[in-house]
Simulated assay, not measured.
Amino acid sequence: MKPLEPKPKIPYVVGSKSPTAVAINSASKAGEWIKSRLGLIKEINTKCSPQDLVTDVDKGAELMIRKLILTHFPDHSILGEEGVEPGAEASERALNQAKEAEYLWIIDPIDGTTNFVQGFPFFCVSIALAYRGEVIIGVIYDPIRDEMFVAEKGKGAYVHGNPMKVSRDEKLADSVLAVGFNPDRSYALPVNMKGINALADRTLSLRAAGSAALHLAYVAAGRLGGYCEVGLNAWDIAAGALLVKESGGMVTDTTGNPYDIGVRRLVASNGRIHQELLDVLKNAEATGV
């Protein structure tokens, strides 16, 4: 019997000027450069807390992505993590100033910077495009696993060119959920800990791998049943939220209101366990409201 031939690798770098192709190309090029800088970081600083890190590689990757996007779309606006002052208030101000743009690119050059600094292989590039405040394109690239997650509004979501579907878990007890240990130690972390404590014995298991964007990509791919965290920013979740919705899942804030790019208290799931997850967070006073 002849051995099966490996499937041809789908090219990620597309020579088109469509916004989706530009997002894919930008994420791919930045991701490969980030990967090449593992262990070669020259500068590490902190932002809103000692646990909130930023490196010269974050800044370089964002500059690269900005240049690639603006080469094709010079009239578009860009909201990138490294162009915003640290802290929740600064993030909210920057989003309010930018969200009225007709076309707004929302970029996190390295989601999971602490992992990148430590050499822990769970970080990614996240790029989204919003049209009049609604996310229409979401791209997340994991350079370590060479996984490109892509979603277009109304056209589904894909990884390696294959359609993604959320898990079919019917209840929390059957689900593996992702949670986050937010670097905001004064507000977000205590709220998240309440939720983590409440969910620990209500789920099959919990995971906290340190990248909101990849957690959302994994919900979209059916690898996780859901994900929740308080204290996030638009660039952490814009691309991933579209991936989840286009894979058949549900994304809201922690009180069940529909997702928009201003949401900072996030719950994403396969949809089937969503209300049960919201109820647990509410009863644990872990909504952040």
Rank of each mutant, 00 (worst) to 15 (best):
P3M: 14
L4P: 12
E5L: 15
P6R: 11
K7W: 13
K9W: 06
K9C: 01
G15F: 14
S16E: 15
K17I: 14
K17F: 13
K17G: 10
S18Y: 11
P19T: 02
A23M: 09
I24R: 14
I24A: 14
A27M: 12
S28L: 07
W33E: 02
I34R: 06
I34V: 10
K35E: 01
L40Q: 01
E43P: 06
I44R: 00
T46W: 01
L53H: 01
K59S: 07
A61N: 05
M64R: 06
I69K: 02
T71A: 13
T71G: 08
D75C: 10
S77F: 09
S77E: 10
I78S: 08
I78Y: 03
G80F: 00
E81A: 01
G87I: 09
A88G: 07
A88V: 11
A90L: 10
A90Y: 04
A90H: 09
L95C: 11
A101W: 06
A101M: 08
A101C: 11
E102I: 15
L104S: 11
L104R: 09
I110V: 10
D111K: 00
D111C: 00
G112Y: 05
G112E: 02
T113W: 02
T114K: 10
T114L: 07
F120L: 06
V125I: 15
S126K: 03
I127T: 03
A128D: 10
A130S: 15
V135N: 06
I136D: 14
G138E: 10
V139F: 08
V139D: 09
R145Y: 13
M148G: 05
V150Y: 06
K153S: 14
A157H: 08
A157Q: 03
Y158S: 09
H160T: 06
H160P: 08
K165S: 15
K165D: 12
V166A: 12
V166M: 08
R168C: 11
R168W: 15
D169K: 15
D174Y: 11
S175Y: 07
S175V: 06
V176H: 04
L177I: 09
A178G: 15
V179F: 00
D184R: 09
Y187K: 13
A188V: 02
A188R: 02
L189E: 04
L189H: 02
L189Q: 09
P190N: 01
I196H: 05
A200Q: 12
D201M: 14
D201G: 10
R202Y: 12
R202W: 13
L204R: 14
R207C: 08
A208T: 03
A209C: 12
S211Q: 05
A213P: 04
A213E: 01
Y218H: 12
A221Q: 03
G222T: 03
L224R: 01
G225K: 05
V230H: 10
L232A: 07
N233L: 00
N233G: 06
W235E: 02
L242Q: 00
L243T: 07
S247M: 08
T252S: 08
N257W: 12
P258M: 10
D260K: 11
D260T: 07
I261S: 01
G262P: 08
R265M: 10
A268I: 03
N270R: 04
G271H: 04
H274I: 00
H274W: 06
E276Q: 11
L277Y: 06
L281N: 07
A284N: 00
V289S: 14
